[in-house]
């Protein structure tokens, strides 16, 4: 395959970036999107031009590092996959492909396609954990949890924290991310007790870091590579409302 690539180049956080055009030949349909970029980088490095910086690590859709906007969609238009799981067979010979970094006020560009997503770490640090310390394992039948609840928690736990939901949202809202984390922890008995404060603290932290509010665009669910449902946001909003009222009274 022969491709025309328009790629966002930006030397550092402080400098202005711009799209630059490159041509790449010899791409095979079974190559992954990142392997296509590897080839471009080999070509650039061979001609003395600086390779394109992009984040990646596990290359099997579980680490949450890859973070490209391909032809306007975070990750890609292929549903339910990360950038690294997007294969070139989804493109055609001669295509022009536009590649940009995830965009959000809370995700400053570090270089080229690499953005700083440590704001998500700050949200987790505000409550994305269970405070009780790990002690001895108790008997498996001491805490009965129904399969429905386990599945609910497990599905939410599949969030890899990539930030595509935020990059896709017109408000750069982190609500799907926070809802996934709070559902994962809060529907289980171990995490239930501190769920109200968890929800309040994580949402307040997101506001403070410059993430926007949710206006029910639902695009977050559409681009989520793990298929996290927006129903988690509704669940979190119920907790938030009750917790916010209760905390005002006190």
């Amino acid at each position: 395959m022969k491709l025309k690539l328009k790629i966002w180049r930006q030397a550092s956080k402080e400098t202005q970036g711009a799209l630059r055009t490159y041509e790449l030949d010899g791409v095979e349909p079974d190559d992954s999107f990142l392997e296509m970029l590897d080839q471009l980088n080999q070509q650039l490095a061979a001609t003395g031009e600086e390779p394109v910086a992009f984040d990646h690590d596990c290359r099997e859709g579980i680490c949450g590092m890859c973070s490209l906007v391909i032809n306007g969609t975070p990750h890609s238009r292929v549903s339910g996959v990360t950038t690294c799981q997007t294969y070139m067979r989804h493109f055609r010979d001669g295509d022009t492909i536009v590649v940009e970094p995830f965009r959000a006020a809370a995700f400053p560009v570090i270089k080229d396609l690499v953005v700083d997503r440590s704001a998500l770490d700050e949200i987790i640090a505000a409550g994305g954990y269970i405070s009780v310390k790990t002690g001895h394992a108790q008997d498996a039948n001491d805490l009965l949890i129904s399969k429905e609840v386990v599945d609910l928690s497990m599905d939410a736990a599949s969030c890899i924290g990539c930030g595509a939901c935020i990059a896709a949202c017109r408000n750069a809202s982190a609500m799907l991310f926070i809802a996934a984390k709070t559902t994962h922890l809060g529907v289980l008995p171990q995490g239930d007790i501190e769920q109200p404060t968890r929800v309040l603290n994580m949402i307040r932290k997101a506001d403070e870091l410059g993430f926007g509010s949710c206006s029910n665009e639902l695009v977050c669910e559409a681009v989520c590579p793990k298929g996290i449902s927006v129903s988690n946001i509704a669940r979190m909003n119920r907790t938030y409302l009750a917790a916010a009222l209760a905390s005002r009274k006190a």
Binding site: V27, E28, D31, S32, E35, M36, R59, E60
Partner: peptide
């Protein structure tokens, strides 16, 4: 392994 550009293998 499929292509010559393969960068990693998936378990």
């Amino acid at each position: 392994r499929t292509g010559r550009h393969q960068s990693k293998l998936t378990l």
